[in-house]
Design a protein around this nucleic acid. Structure first.
Lengths: 244, 244
DNA sequence: CGCACCTTTGAATGAGATCAAAGATGGTGG
DNA sequence: CCACCATCTTTGATCTCATTCAAAGGTGCG
């Protein structure tokens, strides 16, 4: 069940050198493990939930349903991500979270966050900064969907995914992307049919290569360029409280 | 210069009963006032900035510029809002902030946030919750722009503005909206021309009334309905740390 | 190996963009 | 106080990018 590793601690460790106490506090959030089957729903829009999660393994998606049957995918979550943070603002989940692959998550409840805030100011500040970075990525995504043509939106989504995967795996440039074209459409505000044509275009132009659901990046610079992508993975740390 | 009122304290006071110490800490953030002319830029995308602001008076907008000349407006800021929080995650502003009307803001720097986090866990938790609520609103906006037709997007924007104005002014239903149709377009991912046609449609259908830039809400329920709007202004407080 | 789901391609349609030009509005300086 | 000019709004005509509809291949899993 519990491993003495912590995905979240590893991630935060990129930004600051964690104290043992901090590492222990983060590890406590990952003391419980839950297996999730591909397709299973972890959180449902509108349903009560005070649970949060840290992703240990697998891919998940957060989405909302529109009145007209449409669906918007807000974010793809990867290992090391925190999920369901909005439980800290709302008693009812604003988004549905579904597993795209078999996944392992570590659930904890919001009272554990209360404890963290009370005793670890620096971790709290990091959590806030991470949340703000995520908000900024969401803003970038909005700009992409609101103000760029179909091809650039697809490019942006690929950049987002690749940039994040690179952290854990700097070498890999071929990735199994467990998203159907319909889902890519729901993330970019397009129809599956149009997604298909645009992906074909990117492949024809030698920017990506596709084999089934495996995507290989052939011309990262051109993709970033078409997407107008900004990497938001580095965060400012100079203002953080002293460790303690 | 300094007034002994705090917009932010008033706002947070809606959610919890603040202690004197908490009220004082928040007041300190608003000890300095700065006047901003309509059209003036407070923060510029890409430029260094460690300043944050609390809005005291006036309307402002946050936007990003796209490579192709397009612009996406992310958020309209009103009195009581915190602006420039992303300075806590990035040394360079990800968004440009511009005053839509003459405005008064209270600047403070991010080291003051450090102090707040060190000594006021409950305020820190509230700040986190507020940020998460804002992120959720951004997600709602993304769903609106990505997955609904032009008319519904305009409706959503109006709902967002009216819902927030209602807090300070529950009675008013006619509001001077200092946005050009071009700006409404930049917020909704539409052209000014199409915004014009959609607004006319909403007026023709008796949902709103327009006199110059003053908009009156005639059928709030129908507007909310068309927009698929969810009010995100209430936040959960049961998990917050005890005051102290 | 058969069925459900996904991808691919073609053709027709449509929502919103683009282009163009005529009113309205309001702030500024004379 | 008024006239002027810049900016914003409104409306029409045309165009285009993406949607919709339809149907033929693939793929993988039970």
């Amino acid at each position: 069940m519990s491993s003495n590793e912590s995905n979240l601690a590893d991630r935060l460790g990129h930004y600051v050198v964690l104290t043992d106490a901090e590492r222990a506090a983060l590890g406590a959030l990952e003391s419980e493990e839950r297996q999730v089957r591909r397709g299973a729903t972890l959180l449902e829009e509108g349903k009560a939930s005070r649970e949060l999660f840290i992703v240990r393994k697998g891919w998940l998606q957060s989405s909302v349903l529109l009145g007209n049957g449409g669906r918007q995918i807000m974010r793809i979550s990867l290992p090391g991500d925190v999920l369901g943070l909005s439980a800290l603002a709302f008693d009812e989940a604003p988004e549905t979270v579904k597993a795209l692959t078999d996944a392992t998550v570590c659930p904890f409840d919001r009272e554990q966050v209360t404890g963290l805030i009370n005793s670890h100011p620096r971790l709290t500040a990091l959590l806030l900064a991470l949340t703000l970075a995520e908000r900024t990525v969401l803003a970038d995504r909005l700009a992409s969907v609101g103000r760029t043509p179909a091809r650039a939106r697809i490019a942006w989504l690929l950049c987002d995914i690749f940039a994040r995967l690179r952290i854990a795996n700097p070498d890999h440039d071929a990735v199994h992307v467990p998203l159907t074209q319909e889902e890519i459409g729901d993330a970019t505000g397009l129809t599956a049919v149009h997604v298909n044509r645009m992906m074909r275009g990117l492949a024809d132009d030698g920017i990506i290569e596709r084999r089934g659901s495996v995507v290989r990046l052939l011309a990262e610079d051109r993709l970033f360029d078409e997407a107008n992508f900004t990497n938001r993975l580095d965060i400012a740390t100079s203002w953080l409280p002293r460790a303690g």
